[in-house]
Measured scan of single mutants.
Amino acid sequence: KNAAQIVDEALNQGITLFVADNRLQYETSRDNIPEELLNEWKYYRQDLIDFLQQLD
């Protein structure tokens, strides 16, 4: 998997990933985040941060 796929997957589930103060953050109206997504975000944290910062 790559960062773009993970960001896309999150968006499809109503979750927006973004970077604030060099930390990976998310916004969602969901009550909870599936644990497998959280684990994936932790595992790919630096890739996601790098990818999202390139988009800014």
Results as ranks from 00 to 15, higher is better:
51 F>I: 03
51 F>W: 10
50 D>L: 12
29 S>P: 07
11 L>W: 11
13 Q>F: 10
31 D>W: 06
33 I>D: 01
17 L>N: 01
52 L>E: 00
34 P>C: 03
28 T>D: 03
26 Y>F: 09
56 D>I: 10
56 D>W: 07
32 N>E: 13
13 Q>I: 10
38 L>N: 03
1 K>S: 04
21 D>C: 09
1 K>A: 04
29 S>T: 14
41 W>E: 00
13 Q>K: 09
16 T>C: 09
27 E>M: 13
39 N>S: 11
26 Y>W: 15
48 L>W: 01
17 L>W: 01
33 I>W: 03
21 D>V: 04
18 F>C: 07
54 Q>G: 13
5 Q>H: 06
34 P>E: 06
44 Y>W: 07
6 I>R: 02
14 G>E: 05
56 D>C: 08
7 V>M: 06
38 L>T: 06
54 Q>N: 12
36 E>A: 12
56 D>L: 11
3 A>I: 11
16 T>Q: 09
42 K>Q: 14
38 L>D: 03
17 L>I: 06
25 Q>Y: 15
19 V>D: 02
42 K>A: 15
47 D>F: 07
55 L>W: 10
19 V>K: 01
10 A>T: 03
20 A>T: 11
53 Q>L: 14
47 D>Q: 14
22 N>Q: 09
20 A>R: 14
48 L>F: 00
2 N>V: 09
7 V>S: 02
20 A>K: 15
29 S>I: 11
14 G>F: 05
9 E>M: 05
20 A>Q: 14
6 I>E: 01
19 V>Y: 14
6 I>V: 07
25 Q>T: 07
17 L>E: 02
12 N>F: 10
33 I>V: 10
35 E>V: 12
37 L>Q: 04
4 A>P: 06
2 N>L: 12
43 Y>L: 15
50 D>A: 13
21 D>Y: 06
27 E>Y: 15
15 I>M: 02
8 D>F: 15
56 D>G: 14
32 N>F: 14
35 E>H: 08
45 R>V: 13
29 S>N: 13
18 F>P: 02
23 R>K: 15
35 E>K: 09
36 E>I: 10
47 D>S: 10
11 L>E: 06
1 K>I: 04
48 L>T: 00
24 L>G: 01
44 Y>E: 01
28 T>V: 04
46 Q>V: 10
48 L>G: 00
42 K>G: 09
22 N>D: 12
27 E>K: 15
32 N>K: 12
53 Q>W: 06
23 R>P: 01
3 A>N: 02
18 F>R: 05
30 R>A: 10
35 E>G: 08
40 E>D: 13
15 I>L: 03
45 R>F: 10
46 Q>W: 07
10 A>L: 03
2 N>R: 10
41 W>G: 00
30 R>C: 06
6 I>S: 01
42 K>C: 11
5 Q>G: 05
20 A>E: 14
2 N>E: 10
37 L>M: 12
17 L>Q: 01
42 K>T: 13
11 L>C: 09
32 N>I: 12
25 Q>P: 01
52 L>M: 04
20 A>M: 12
17 L>G: 01
26 Y>S: 03
3 A>W: 05
11 L>F: 12
54 Q>R: 14
20 A>I: 14
54 Q>E: 11
19 V>R: 00
39 N>R: 12
47 D>H: 09
49 I>R: 03
12 N>K: 15
33 I>K: 01
55 L>H: 12
51 F>M: 04
12 N>V: 13
11 L>A: 13
16 T>N: 10
7 V>G: 00
51 F>N: 01
44 Y>Q: 03
31 D>Y: 07
28 T>P: 13
24 L>A: 00
34 P>T: 11
51 F>D: 00
29 S>Q: 12
49 I>N: 02
1 K>C: 04
36 E>D: 12
46 Q>Y: 07
30 R>V: 09
8 D>Y: 15
21 D>A: 06
23 R>T: 15
24 L>N: 01
34 P>N: 07
18 F>M: 07
44 Y>V: 03
33 I>L: 10
13 Q>W: 12
35 E>S: 11
11 L>M: 11
56 D>T: 13
41 W>V: 05
50 D>P: 04
51 F>H: 08
24 L>E: 01
26 Y>Q: 02
2 N>K: 13
36 E>F: 09
29 S>C: 08
42 K>F: 14
41 W>A: 02
24 L>T: 01
36 E>N: 11
25 Q>G: 08
22 N>T: 05
31 D>H: 09
9 E>Y: 08
14 G>D: 04
8 D>A: 15
56 D>E: 13
24 L>Q: 00
35 E>M: 11
33 I>H: 02
6 I>H: 01
13 Q>Y: 13
26 Y>N: 02
56 D>M: 11
5 Q>E: 08
46 Q>G: 05
40 E>W: 04
3 A>R: 01
16 T>R: 15
36 E>G: 09
37 L>N: 03
37 L>K: 03
16 T>I: 15
11 L>D: 05
31 D>G: 09
1 K>W: 04
50 D>H: 10
49 I>V: 08
14 G>S: 04
24 L>V: 06
27 E>G: 06
56 D>S: 14
27 E>T: 14
54 Q>P: 10
16 T>S: 08
33 I>C: 02
30 R>E: 08
6 I>F: 02
48 L>R: 00
15 I>V: 10
39 N>M: 13
40 E>Y: 05
29 S>H: 12
33 I>Q: 01
55 L>S: 12
6 I>A: 00
16 T>A: 08
14 G>L: 04
21 D>F: 07
1 K>V: 05
40 E>G: 02
13 Q>E: 10
7 V>T: 04
51 F>L: 05
15 I>H: 04
39 N>A: 14
43 Y>R: 11
39 N>Y: 12
23 R>I: 15
47 D>M: 13
15 I>E: 01
32 N>L: 09
12 N>M: 14
8 D>L: 15
12 N>C: 07
12 N>T: 13
17 L>T: 02
40 E>M: 08
17 L>A: 01
49 I>K: 04
3 A>D: 01
18 F>Y: 13
7 V>F: 10
